[in-house]
Each structure stands twice: as C-alpha cells, then as structure tokens.
C-alpha cells in the first residue's frame, strides 16, 4: 500500500489519464449542452496527450512531444470551428441543447 501511495510510477500517470478520459467520455454521453460536450471532448484529448507524454518519457522518444503539440493546435482549431457552429445554431433557435435539434427527423 505504501508503494502505491508513495512510489509514483508510470502506472499512476497512465491511470490518471484513463480516469480523465472516462470522465470526458461520460460527459459527452450524459450532458446535453453542446458547450459542455465540447469541453468534455477537450478533456478526452488531454487524457490522450497525457498518455502520450507518459509513454514518450517511458520510451525516451521525443517525437511524441511533437505529436502532443500538434494535438493541442488541432484542439484549438476544433474549438474555434465548434464554437462558431454553436453560435450559428443559437442564432436560429436560441438554445444549444442537443436533444432539441429536431428539424431533421428519423
């Protein structure tokens, strides 16, 4: 038990990332507000980045740092487009609730 608490190894970082990923995934699945869903997706990307950096450290390979940097830039671009779409949807219907998007029927 003492080892688990005081001896921080790769497992700790990886499990922390997994917890963040699952929280983000649960957020996407249970929340209905588009902005919260977008934030949850950002959490998932951060979890992936943390995993990437932990493994990068483990393998002594810096190329994953480049990858993580690119992921951050992509996340920024995605957030910009996503927020623009949210604004466009809000302009038409005054809320951004995913459940109330019903103009397209099944």
């Amino acid at each position: 038990m003492g080892d688990l608490v005081f001896d921080i190894g790769y497992g700790h970082f990886l499990v922390l990332a997994a917890v963040l990923f699952v929280i983000g995934m649960a957020g996407v699945l249970i929340r209905r507000n588009a902005l919260i869903i977008l934030m949850s997706v950002e959490l998932m990307l951060n979890a992936a980045n943390m995993t990437l950096l932990a493994f990068s450290r483990m393998w002594g390979d810096l190329s994953a740092h480049t990858f993580a940097l690119i992921v951050i830039a992509v996340a920024a671009a995605e957030a910009a487009v996503g927020l623009a779409i949210v604004v466009a949807v809000f302009r038409g219907r005054r809320n951004v609730d995913v459940d109330r998007l019903t103009a397209l029927r099944h």
Binding site: L35, L38, R57, A68, I72, A73, A75, A76
Partner: peptide
C-alpha cells in the same frame, strides 16, 4: 513527466486561449 515545454503550452494555449474563447 519532464515535458516542461508542453506544460507551458498547455497553460498558455488551453487554460489561457481556448478557455477564454469558451
């Protein structure tokens, strides 16, 4: 995790820029 640069980028870009956009 010895990712000093990424840590700073994380703070500047994520906590700074993207969240301000939100």
């Amino acid at each position: 995790l010895y990712a000093h640069f990424l840590a700073v980028v994380q703070m500047l870009v994520y906590a700074g820029a993207i969240m301000v956009l939100f």
